[in-house]
Amino acid sequence: MERTRRTQARLLLVFVLAVPLLSGCWDRQEIEQRAVVLGVGIDVASEQTVNKNEGEVSHLRGSFPEPETGNIRVTMQIAVPGRIPLGPGVSGSGGGGGGAGGQNTVWVVDGFGQTINDALNNMQQSVALPLFYGHLRVIVISEAVAKKGIQNLNDFLRRNPEIRRMTWMVVSRGKAAEVMRLRRSSSVCRRFT
């Protein structure tokens, strides 16, 4: 009698403790359900383009004045799963001409916003899967943005635990977006890896 009651108490304890665990898997996000960002380019954008392209994601259009550092256009390279073959079998089928509908191994997506966070949020609207910065290899900043100071950008990027500290941060002479769109026929996704 005593024993059964103790066993019951134990079982109850186990169940009670198991409840918070059973509702688990908060952070489970399969690799194929992540948009693997390989490179980020940051350019300045005029207010018109921003207003035209920005969805009303983080704030209503025109409700915020343009920040001192100016508007931002973020261009991102996202790896296209399935285009990079597993193993050495079909190599280099990507790249090529790189025209529309070609076997691109990466998508290049643009996002506009007043700040980088804004721009990334906007960009997320055009990508179905959550952006994943764990494999981010390079951050290209155009000269124009760099001249305005990168403290803000740097701070933002550093606070994101996904972004590794080893990521290269480079300044491009021209537009960062063009660097993001560069292609070489032999590259698969190796451009920055």
């Binding site: 918070p20 665990l21 635990p161």
Partner: peptide, 19 residues
């Protein structure tokens, strides 16, 4: 919860350690 399990409740990670 800050660096790896960003969406997991704090309570869970704490209770797991204590448990």
């Amino acid at each position: 919860i800050t660096s790896v399990l960003k969406r997991t409740p704090l309570e869970v990670t704490v209770i797991v350690m204590l448990l």
